[in-house]
Simulated assay, not measured.
Amino acid sequence: MNDYNVVAYTSKYYDQWNSFVAQAKNATFLFHRDFIEYHQDRFEDASKMIFKGDKLVALFPANKNGDTIYSHQGLTYGGLLLKDQAVFTDVLNVFKELLAFFNKLGVNDLVLKMLPRIYNKLPSDTLDYFMFILNAQLVRSDITMVIENSHRLELTSSNRKRGLKKAKKQNLVVKEEEDLSAFWNQILVPNLRDRFNVKPVHTLQEITYLKSKFPKNIRQFNVYKNDEIVAGTTIFESEMVAHAQYISANNQKQELGSLDMIFHHLIEDVFASKKYFDFGICNENEGKQINQGLLSWKESFGARSISQNFYKIETSNYKNLNTILK
């Protein structure tokens, strides 16, 4: 493994990092440095770049918290970022070198938040196999609700059909907006505060900044009745997936069918050619419970579940990877 070298990311690698992300088979815009660093004051960055000789062969977005490395707590998913040409032995050598590097630094545990496979441009489950070899502990598992557009289920839910009829009768209008403030201030923030006593993960200032950096990836769709906003959703769009990052409506959603209207428009029209439409998770209590109402609502659009797993790896177990090849 002596021809591999693990290097800590610094700003001098900004362009090289982002160029690699753009070409990786298992990366989205969330791994761009501008996205990772929008909340850099909250995390101690521990991102690594792995070189083979002079050639950059992998990235590992990460942060450090105490004596544990995470992949990355400020992102929805993570893992080892690779190019199309990476074969099994490349991934094996890179991940072994990475674990050995952390182990030598005195890091005992690495917590890996897996990238759901729907985001992969090519098959990329090698790390899943390594979790078995490394005796990794499964510490959390979420389900995310997904529509595969090439095999979209016919909408059979009577509630969804009735909601869409209501929306059409109410003359609701769906518009894509550049300004997120109406949705944040009038719908999302009050709704989350009143129903759950929580705030959005992103402040309006943060999401506005991120949209300015990624205008093609972060898209806002609102529903209006008589020019008054009644619902909306914020979409994070990557090459393979349109993901509903935020979904919210005012307390008239049952009467108006506003959410039925917006998701019918997005699934049937705006993102019909996207491979997957991702409604997001239904989990609570660190993955141990599922919000049944939310689950049923997402299933009623034809979404079905895939899993996202979180593993804890003892870095000293990197030696186990020496036993794989015969």
Results as ranks from 00 to 15, higher is better:
N2V: 12
V6M: 03
V6H: 02
A8Y: 08
D15W: 01
W17G: 07
Q23F: 03
N26R: 00
F31Y: 14
H32L: 08
R33N: 11
D34Q: 10
E37W: 09
K52P: 05
D54L: 10
L59S: 04
P61V: 01
N63M: 10
D67S: 15
T68M: 07
G74P: 09
L75H: 00
L81M: 07
D84L: 03
V87I: 09
V87R: 12
V91S: 09
V94L: 01
K96F: 06
F101N: 12
F101P: 05
F101S: 11
V111T: 12
S124C: 15
D125I: 08
D128N: 13
Y129K: 03
L134Q: 11
L134E: 12
N135Y: 14
R140M: 09
I143W: 06
I143P: 04
T144V: 13
M145R: 07
E148K: 13
L155R: 09
S158L: 07
L164Q: 04
Q170A: 15
L172Y: 10
K175Q: 13
L180N: 09
P190D: 12
N191V: 14
V198F: 05
V198K: 03
R219W: 11
N226A: 10
G232S: 05
I235R: 00
S238F: 08
E239C: 06
I247D: 10
S248Y: 04
Q252M: 08
S258H: 05
I267L: 02
D269L: 00
V270R: 03
G280H: 07
I281M: 10
G287A: 01
N291P: 09
Q292A: 06
K298T: 12
G302N: 00
S305C: 03
S305K: 02
S307H: 03
F310R: 01
